[in-house]
Design a protein around this nucleic acid. Structure first.
Length: 466
RNA sequence: UCCUCCCUAGCUCAGUUGGUUAGAGCAUCUGACUGUUAAUCAGAGGGUCGCUGGUUCAAGUCCAGCGGGGGGAGCCA
């Protein structure tokens, strides 16, 4: 076919008003309607949620060619941009020539014109990006990733590439996937019969990272403001709509930030990102609001306009105990909050995001700064409606003595932590940081209910297809 | 990992106290229609009722095991 027409993406075509212009477009057919005289072909190229209507006067097209233009096929169209006489779209393309790049057999192509369940789409994750829903989710996901880099870059943070392979299992954030080149059938053994990891690729036992925080702290003690944003792996047998074995996490780490600065940053960042989604992905959000969650747009706007509620763990316990609410799990000071407790606080009592601080030290990680009361640490968890914990963070313990005491107390192998302890030995500083689960953010922003639907190819127990 | 629910046509589902030949909508195919919007109208094809075993004269239906999936819980981001 003639190649002298300039190719446009659908997103741009829909905005053009110079009717009569000759253009080319390429994309995938969503539907074909019509009669003997005329065919209406909805073409989507992923640049925007909307499809463009291509109109083919069937007198001018080969019947055999038109038979190949089916839902799912890929075509290139030369045509003229015209004002649409029909309802539903401002412009359409009067086709002059159509080339079929790839057919999609109508009898076996799994995606139909009608809606599919999200569960079914998970089974065809290789094709689900072609749906309106996943187009929207993936564009929003991109915008959020870009917005995160923009947010931190604009504020002078350095993007730190923390390692994916790690030899430290000390963070305690969860079970690690082992990384090895040893023959798992017959690994080399020591004289005492244990697997000899000194013969392994790295000369020691290694795994995939469960957190970039510790390395983030190292860099924060030099660059001041850093963040990591990378894949994170947890070999936990978690089967919930909120957990993945492979997910992405953003972990800012800031020298000279105390717990309040930390909370301010977390709240400001979340509001910025929600606003960024509204600014850059409104069409997609509108679609999701219409199809899945009628309160999505209202909820997003509410988040931006209202301050998060901040209170201590102790105050939260008091509220829960005074609530008169029947909980499946008892509430008492010292016990970790259960999902039902967090949900009560966020969705029943405060009706807004909640930041809880100063948790009992015995239920939190070793690196959190110990309060003077000897009982609590400067932890902060940001709890969101529907999602639960979206951020977990703390001011870090900067005292060498206190940190070492805690490491010993919790039986963390000190020999693996020498480099981390060195930061407290040499030029230590008050500092803070947190971890934001990227997919949980996307859950909130898209209104999707299952975390497997906000990542292109989810990795969960018993599932690594695609 | 625990609790619970589900698995019937390509998809979404119905299927009565166990009883003859398992149904519908959509999708697909064929036909009709001069501009459709999840087009419409008419017709047709399409099933190892997740798998294995058991109970019974008789199992989509009852029982057991296994597999897959959803929701809740735990672990957390």
């Amino acid at each position: 076919m003639k190649e002298d027409f300039a190719t446009y993406r659908v997103k741009d075509l829909l905005k053009l008003t110079d009717f009569g212009k000759e253009i080319n477009l390429k994309g995938w057919v969503r539907t074909k309607r019509g009669n003997k005289q005329v065919a209406f072909i909805a073409v989507n190229d992923g640049s925007i949620i909307h499809s463009i209507q291509v109109v083919a006067d069937l007198g001018q097209f080969d019947e055999e060619l038109m038979k190949l233009v089916t839902t799912g096929s890929c075509i290139s169209v030369n045509g003229v941009l015209v004002e649409s006489p029909g309802q539903g779209q401002p412009v359409e393309v009067q086709a002059r020539a159509i080339e079929v790049y790839g057919t999609a057999d109508a009898g076996t192509y799994p995606l139909q014109k009608k809606g599919h369940t999200l569960e079914f789409l998970r089974e065809i994750a290789h094709l689900r990006p072609r749906t309106n829903t996943f187009g929207a989710v993936l564009r929003i996901r991109h915008a959020m990733a870009f917005g995160i880099h923009k947010y931190y870059n604009d504020r002078g943070f350095v993007y730190l590439h923390s390692p994916i392979i790690t030899g430290s299992d000390a963070e305690g954030a969860g079970a690690m996937f082992q990384v090895t080149t040893l023959d798992v059938e017959k690994p080399p053994r020591t004289e005492t019969g244990e697997v000899d990891y000194s013969k392994d690729f790295f000369g020691k036992h290694t795994g995939l990272t469960v957190s970039g925080q510790l390395e983030g702290e190292l860099a924060a003690m030099a660059l001041g403001l850093v963040y990591t944003f990378g894949p994170t792996f947890r070999a936990e047998n978690s089967n919930t709509p909120r957990h993945l074995a492979e997910f992405w996490m953003i972990e800012p780490e800031m020298a000279f930030y105390d717990i309040t600065d930390n909370m301010d940053l977390a709240e400001d960042m979340l509001k910025y990102l929600v606003q960024y989604a509204l600014d850059t992905c409104y069409d997609d959000l509108e679609f999701l609001n219409k199809m899945y969650d009628n309160e999505l747009l209202d909820r997003l706007k509410f988040i931006i306009e209202n301050p998060f509620e901040r209170l201590s763990y102790t105050e939260a316990i008091d509220i829960l105990m005074a609530s008169g609410q029947k909980f499946e799990f008892p509430v008492s000071w010292g016990l970790d909050l259960q999902s039902e407790h967090e949900r009560y606080l966020v969705e029943k009592h405060f009706l807004r995001p909640v930041i809880l601080t100063d948790y009992p030290r015995d239920i939190k990680a070793f690196y959190m700064k110990q309060n003077d009361d000897g009982k609590t640490v400067r932890a902060m968890d940001v709890l969101f409606p529907k999602i639960g914990e979206i951020i977990g963070g703390s001011q870090r313990e900067e005292s060498y003595e206190k940190l070492l005491a805690r490491i010993e107390e919790m039986h963390i192998p000190e020999k693996d932590m020498w480099w981390y302890l060195d930061t407290r030995k040499f030029g230590t500083a008050p500092h803070s940081g947190f971890g934001l689960g990227f997919e949980r953010l996307i859950l909130f922003v898209t209104g999707m209910a299952n975390i497997r639907d906000v990542i292109p190819f989810p990795r969960t127990p018993q599932n690594a297809e695609f």
